[in-house]
Design a protein around this nucleic acid. Structure first.
Lengths: 99, 99
DNA sequence: CAGAGAACTCTGTATAACAGAGTATTCTTT
DNA sequence: AAAGAATACTCTGTTATACAGAGTTCTCTG
């Protein structure tokens, strides 16, 4: 049976990757938006973003916008590829193909 | 964002539920077949089946067939419902609907 | 410099996945 | 009856990690 990507499979990270993957290539989401979207505490969210970044699935850009710091997270091509494969594997399992 | 079913989300249990869900209602799979399908060790597989049984998602029937013990696992209506909801939630997340 | 806001980093707790060892049950063979 | 084989557990110890919340860093404002 097909193997799922452990990095992506965790619910919070799956949500992050799905949200980023739905965006046009090379655009991202801000930390605050992701926090609202996922409902995670900021410590926890930061840790998961780091896990994704270490895997090379997202890139993180920090900047000051106006007077406030802003972190933007963007899916990398590798991240989009891994997400697509993960989804394909999920669909295969869900469909009940028992090969 | 929609919440996933923790019981079902775990990879091994997802595979078990998907395999059982694909069968005609009221038919099940034997322990040995599930073991082969998932690649789990028997201790681990037994533990996951118990978790699913405790949640009311599967029923477990033990019998002797010929000279050998045989355990058959079957998805309950509740299990099928939970699986369907879980899949719907997954699809929603994967589609990137950020509501 | 005090204070505010954003995004961390760190720490401790709790959960739980997993492999592998040992056990119970049943039948077969001797 | 005792030994052995097969199936499916149950138990144990290790390891990983999710998570909340506290404390920290960085920048700008007043």
């Amino acid at each position: 049976m097909a193997e799922l990507d452990d990095i992506i499979h965790q619910p919070l990270r799956l949500k992050i990757m799905a949200a980023l993957n739905a965006l046009p290539v090379a655009s991202g989401l801000e930390f605050a938006r992701l926090k609202k979207l996922t409902g995670a505490t900021d410590g926890n969210l930061g840790a998961h973003i780091e896990t994704l970044a270490k895997a090379g699935y997202v890139s993180v850009e920090k900047a000051f916008v106006g007077k406030k710091p802003q972190t933007t997270v963007t899916a990398t091509p590798a991240g989009r590829g891994a997400f697509a494969r993960h989804v394909a594997t999920l669909q295969e399992i869900i469909a009940g193909r028992q090969g």
